[in-house]
Write a protein that binds this DNA or RNA. Structure first.
Length: 372
DNA sequence: AATTTCGGCAACCGCTGGTCC
DNA sequence: GGGACCAGCGGTTGCCGAAAT
């Protein structure tokens, strides 16, 4: 029985013989493949066109790199998979000479198991954590504990209440208490790489409103802890509670959906990445990403693979500035001031959004992600 | 040494989206 | 608009050699 696509033909299936390979190579190198459906006949093969195409793309193409994957390739796959998910063809584009099939097989046979062994969920890239000490909702717990595990330990704070970032839900009865108990202390904000990435559909959540602001008129550590939630149009009750919350450089991610959970972050460095662009921000800046500021995809790859980013710092944040000086490069436009307005918040559907974090920009980003 | 189990990988299947008529 | 055709993609299958029993 032939394939669905060529049931009228008598086609061979199974492994390709060297003779068949030779015929296919000879035909394509001299004539090109043209329409794949016509290749079998023209090449003298009793295969269906689809099979020919697959054989060529996955095995016979001259530009293929054979052999085992390098550590760098492995790291690339993990990093990109974290952002793109099982989009093997997209991932393979980051690995010259590798096919989607090869990447997929390598993932399923090796990386997946390795991540699990490391306590990382290969699907979400979240740390697989115990639930015995979950004092908040699941998201909070994961984030807080993941961060606490990774961060330099603040000296004067309880770790379970010293998150780098928090999520609260407007529908949660504990959100107010949770907000008012945020223990942010400017001096203890570690330098972190934070990537926001929508992980489904178009990598862009048209319903997410992202904003960032900071009171830049303050000088002392305590004064800098003024928290000012800006014009987040879909913020509901949390906005009115915000003035009682102290932090610096918060980023609020909220959704137009009333049932959604606004996301409040307090990163010292943060960025947003999707298939089209990546931007970073740090310090006391309000930022705005617009469509005409797209960064080329090649640069995204660089950022994903080697997220070493220098962010210009405000002079008011000297201690962070000094720390940031140890980093060395940035390959995209950066600015002390840029506004960020992801996409107008207009509709009700909420798409997943992932976040990644690490505490060392010279190491792979391999800590965690979650949906919100 | 024979048999069974396991794992890697090539190939297949079915679906989707784009294009053409 | 819709049907046919095609390329591309991701999930799944099944072959085959290696490892385990």
């Amino acid at each position: 029985m032939g394939h669905h696509c060529c049931s009228k033909q008598k086609v061979k299936r199974g492994l390709w013989s060297p003779e068949e390979d030779e015929k296919l190579i000879k035909h394509i190198t001299t004539n090109g493949h043209g329409s794949w459906s016509s290749v079998p006949k023209l090449a003298g093969l009793q295969r269906c066109g689809k099979s020919c195409r697959l054989r060529w793309i996955n095995y016979l193409r001259p530009d293929l790199k054979r052999g085992s994957f390098s550590e760098q390739e492995e790291r690339t796959i993990i990093d990109v998979h974290r952002i793109l998910g099982n989009r093997w063809a997209q991932i393979a584009k980051h690995l010259p000479g590798r096919t989607d099939n090869e990447v997929k097989n390598f993932w399923n046979s090796f990386i997946k198991k390795k991540l699990i062994a490391q306590g990382i969920d290969p699907n979400t890239h979240n740390l697989i954590l115990s639930t015995t000490t979950n004092n908040y909702n699941t998201n909070n717990f994961n984030i807080i504990n993941a961060c606490n595990k990774l961060l330099p330990q603040p000296q004067q704070q309880q770790q379970t209440t010293s998150p780098l970032m928090n999520i609260f839900s407007s529908s949660s009865s504990s959100s107010s208490a949770f907000l008012s108990s945020l223990p942010y202390n400017y001096n203890n904000i570690p330098l972190h790489e934070i990537l926001f990435s929508s992980t489904s559909n178009q990598y862009r959540n048209p319903n997410m409103f992202w904003s960032s602001t900071t009171n830049t008129n303050t000088t002392s550590t305590q004064e800098q802890n003024n928290y000012n939630i800006p014009h987040a149009p879909s913020m509901e009750s949390p906005a009115s509670q915000a003035s009682t919350v102290t932090t610096t450089n918060p980023i609020i991610i909220s959704s137009s959906s009333s049932s959604s959970s606004p996301l409040i972050l307090n990163p010292s460095r943060c960025g947003l990445i999707d298939e089209d662009f990546i931007m970073w921000n740090s310090g006391n800046y309000e930022f705005n990403i617009e469509a005409d500021q797209l960064i080329r995809k090649e640069e995204i790859q660089t950022q994903v693979l080697d997220p070493v980013v220098v962010v210009e710092m405000n002079n008011k944040t000297n201690h962070i500035h000094e720390m940031m000086n140890s980093t060395t490069s940035a390959s995209f436009e950066r600015s002390n001031n840029f506004d960020f307005d992801f996409v107008e918040s207009t509709t009700s559907t909420v798409l997943p959004c992932g976040m990644y974090c690490n505490n060392n920009y010279h190491s792979p980003i391999d800590q965690f992600a979650w949906d919100c």
